[in-house]
Each structure stands twice: as C-alpha cells, then as structure tokens.
Nucleic acid binder design. Structure first.
Lengths: 303, 303
DNA sequence: TATTTGACATAGATAAAATCTATAACAGTG
DNA sequence: CACTGTTATAGATTTTATCTATGTCAAATA
C-alpha cells in the first residue's frame, strides 16, 4: 500500500471511471488499473464493482475509501507544512560575532533584520574566535561570524564577503603612502592578544615584534577607538577593517594611508557546527548580510 | 514521500538512533539512512540533527513528525479495517435458488447459517434458472445456486457439489433395476417446462417425448411431491435429486430403482455476475454449503 | 446479428525506487 | 593514538511503478 494507490482509488471513486481517474492522476489507464488491482489484492478487498455502470464502489470499498481519504489528507497536510516551514523565518537564533566584525557590521544589519523578520528572536553575542568555535560545538551558539580561514575542521564555514584592511596613522615626513613590505619597519599598534585580526596583521605584514616604544609602556587595546587614540598620540600605524573605516569621522579618514602595492584583505565568513538545524533561517541571514555589506562596501569604494 | 519513509523518521525519533531504528523497521541502517536523507531532501527540511548526541530532532523536524504520526496512524487504521472487513460476515445477501435445489438443500444449511452469522441478513428467493441469471445481471440478486453447465457466459459459476439423480417409480413386473438406455422406453413423469432438471433428464435419458398417456391428460408438475403422487398413480418413473431422496419417507424410498450401469448426476454451482462485491461473504457461504451438503451426501451413501 | 465503440485488463518492456553488502568517514572514549 | 560505535556513501541487485500495445468484453448502433 502506498499513498499513490490511495489517491488512485479516491480518483476512481470520484470519477466513477478508471480512465478519467487515470487522466486526473497523470498516469496511464493501464498503470492506474494495475495499481488499483494491486491494492485490492494486498488488502484482500474488492473496492470497485467494475461491472456496474457506471463503476460502483463496493460496501467494503466505501469503508476503505473513507480511511484512504484520511491518509491522503494528512499526507497533503504534511507537504503543505513543509512548504510553510520553508517560508518562515522565526524562532530563536543565537549568533556569535567576533569583536572586530561586530562593531562595524552589526549596526549595518541588525535593524533591517529585526524589522524584516519580526518573529525572528535574534540573540547576538560578541566573543573571540576561539570561544566562538567552542560555543558552536557545545550548541551554545547556532551560528558564528568570524574571519577565515580557521584551524578547526569541525566547524564549517561559508564565505560572506572579503573585506579590505586599511592602514591608518602617521608616517615620517607626512608621507601618505607606503609599500606593504615597509609596514614592518613602522611602529605598529595592534589589538590585544586573542583578537584574530591581530594575528592576521602580524602574518600579513610579517611583523616579528612591535617597534620600540618607551619600555615602561606596553600598549595594546581592546577597541579600535582606543587604538586610534594611541596611534595618534604615539605617531604610529595600525590596520583597520574597511567597514570600521566607513564609520570613522572625516578628520580621522584623512589619516588613512594608501598602500602602493595592492591591498590587505580578510575573509569574513559564517560558521556553523550544526549547519542544518536552522538551515533555512541561516541561509536567509547569509543572504541579508552579504547584500547589506556589499552594498556598503561598494558605496565606500565609489566615494 | 512514502509511508515507509514516514515510519523511518518516526522510529529514528523514537530510538534517537538510526541503527536502532533500522533494526526496528527491519531494514539495514544504510537503507534507513538513505531514505531519511531522501525525505529530508524532498521536503527541503532537515529533520534530525545527527551531530547531537544522542541524535536530536530539529524544531522543524518536530512539526513534520507530528504530521507523519497522523499519516502513519491513519494508514495503520486502514490496514486494520481491511483485516476486520475480511473477518466479518454481515450485511444483506440476496440469494436466488432454483426450485429443485431449494426444496432439499435450503433446509440443510439455512438454520446453521443464520445462527453462525447473526449479522448476516440472508434473503433467499426461489426462481428458475433463466430468471436467476437475469436477476443476477440486473443486480437484483447477489448470488445464485443452480445447476451447471449453463449457456450464459456472462455469469460465472463455481462448482459446489455433484449430486446423484435417483430413479423412482414402478417398473413392469416389479423389477428393481434398469439400464440407463432403457429409461427412455418407460413412461417418465417430469417437472413442468422451465425447470432445468426437466431438460437435463430429457438429455441424459435421451427422451424424445413422453410415453403415451391418456391423451386427454397432460401430466406435469411443479413439485416433486405432486410428481411422486402422479408416478404412483399412473405407474411410471421419474428422476429425483439425491438430497430430495434423502428426506423422503421410508415407504417412498422403497420405490427407488437401481441403475445397472453407473449413475445419473447433476452439478450444483454457485453463480455470480459480480463475483467480487461480496466476495468474502460468498466465499464463506460456499464453504458452509459444501461442508453441509457433502456431510449429508456422504451419510446417505453409507446408509 | 454483425460491427463498432468505449472501457477495463493484461503482457512485455523500461524506468525508477528501494534495498542490500561492503566500506568509508567521523566523533567519542579509554 | 588506536579502538569502538554510529552514520554516510558507493555499487550492485531486486523490486516496483509506469508506459505502450494489445486483448477482452459488453453496450450501442447499423
């Protein structure tokens, strides 16, 4: 017994004709005939009196048809549900974002998201990359936004966008541009240990250790704001993600330094450990984020 | 989507394990795994979080499972119904019986049937063969009991039993036996036109026309009782079915005449035009009738 | 009463699917 | 780091559904 067979007998009962029922079900009359026969054999119940004109449903057949109605109705309900589920974006989603992305990216998307999906209960946590991966694995977070590549192979990632990294600060003799290779020679200020952007910049610029500072002063910061103040104060350099640069004051933007040989970039990606649990919602989020961010980055590139 | 797939996800949800669910469903783990995956793809909904330990049902999955429960429950209900239907013998059955069978066979079975199947509403009509076939075709009767073979090919028949035909009456010189070929030479009394037994005897005994009787007297009868009185009165012969003979008085039995060369027989069969509409009931009837009649015929043969 | 027609059944071929065995991949555990 | 238990995957096989073509049968028609 299968659902198709039940649909077939419902159609025969409705049209009082095998051939019309076959048309209705988009199969040949031969197929429908064989399937009805098979069902009758399996149930050991003759459902239709083929000699009656028009075809009649037997008494036993009627009882079977009532039940078949139920089965088919519920099967259709299931199918409808599945479609409805795929439409809706609702329920709790716990999202972790690393700080260097959170500060600039979240303002860009959050308002839009909560307005567009009022049933979506979005909970955002700012955590470091390592913590984020741990929380994903433990199920404390549904999704993370971080910078790739990452060491962990357990967590899957999907690229959201590639973001330029901009050099900010003060060069000797008021120069406004520099080659990548020369960055390591400058006094470079970085975020504290634990921020992956720090490690990326060290690798990208091949910085072994920071340029000499007054030895009684260890200068590291947790936020770009503080970092910029330090850079201005001590006349050094730092590297900022493009989205952060986009929201700086015009005064600060004037201290941006051009790279003479290409650009520094980082990848920003969605990360999940259980990619499927809230697959449809996460897919929407992904689409919304890339749309908003690319719109912004494109706008900045023009201005 | 099919019912098996729904059963599979219900089992996984229940056992929180693909392999245990597979055992439960009597399929291999590979099959169950593939089927669950296929269903998830068709619905575009991930039902299980396989990375959770033990396996967890996703939020969307839970909604699907609730519906699946319904579908499977109703499908099982349908299957149960079909079994129940096959057990029960109830409802109206309209049965036509030709007179030469009715008189002797019905008393044998009717009491037993109505007691054994109290929900069976058996309606019995005594009609001639031709009328019976007509009524079957028109749906006025569900089943008939008659003597085969019959000319009609539209009506299907199933042999119930073969009944001996016994010669009764008075031979010259008080002889107690006769050869078949000599029957035609005797004065033979028969039932009226329309009784198929009449035609069968005419054919079996090769009677062209009846032996001379007083020309101002046409002697035919509608019942064996009358016929026997005529036979006794006019000192002729007639032919009676074994079951009728079985219920005759001992006095009458003493006038039975032995055939020296084998026996005359007729077939008694069930006939239907719509063999399937009440198939299970008719099958029961068939079994009950053959059991009772053969029991009786066997008993008579011994005595 | 022969013929045509309309409808369901059947046969054989083909396509689709479910299932199996064997094995890989992978997470958790000692 | 190997071992164990669990799910996924690949490939072969069996089963099932479906199609086309044709048969059968009864009712309508000439």
């Amino acid at each position: 017994m299968n659902i198709h067979q039940l649909e077939y007998i419902l159609a025969v009962d409705q049209f009082k004709s095998f051939s019309k029922a076959a048309d209705y079900c988009h199969v040949t009359q031969a197929t429908l005939s064989a399937m009805v026969k098979k069902l009758e054999e399996q149930l050991d119940i003759v459902i239709f009196d083929r000699k009656a004109n028009p075809i009649a449903t037997t008494e036993n057949g009627r009882e079977i048809l009532i039940q078949a109605q139920q089965v088919v109705a519920h099967a259709n309900a299931l199918l409808s549900s599945s479609k409805a589920i795929n439409q809706k974006v609702e329920g709790r989603v716990k999202m972790g974002v690393i700080p260097t992305i959170a500060s600039s990216m979240l303002p860009l998307i959050l308002k839009h998201l909560v307005e567009k999906y009022p049933l979506l209960q979005l909970e955002v946590y700012e955590v470091t990359t390592n913590q984020l991966i741990k929380d994903l694995r433990e199920g404390k977070l549904d999704v993370g936004i971080l910078s790739t590549p990452i060491a962990s192979t357990e967590v899957e990632t999907e690229l959201l966008y590639v973001e330029d990294l901009c050099v900010y600060g003060h060069l000797p003799a008021g120069s406004r541009s520099i080659a990548k290779a020369d960055l390591a020679k400058q006094r470079m200020f970085l975020l504290q240990e634990g921020h992956c952007l720090r490690d990326q910049i060290i690798q990208l610029c091949d910085l072994k250790k920071n340029k000499s500072l007054p030895s009684n002063l260890s200068v590291e910061s947790n936020t770009f704001d503080t970092l910029l103040n330090l850079v201005d104060e001590f006349s050094g350099l730092t590297v900022l993600p493009a989205l952060y640069v986009g929201q700086m004051s015009e005064a600060r933007k004037s201290h941006l330094i051009e790279l003479t040989d290409g650009a520094l970039t980082r990848e920003v990606s969605l990360a999940y450990y259980r990619p499927y649990a809230k697959w449809n919602i996460l897919n929407r989020l992904k689409a919304e984020i890339t749309a908003k961010v690319n719109e912004r980055l494109h706008f900045q590139a023009l201005s």
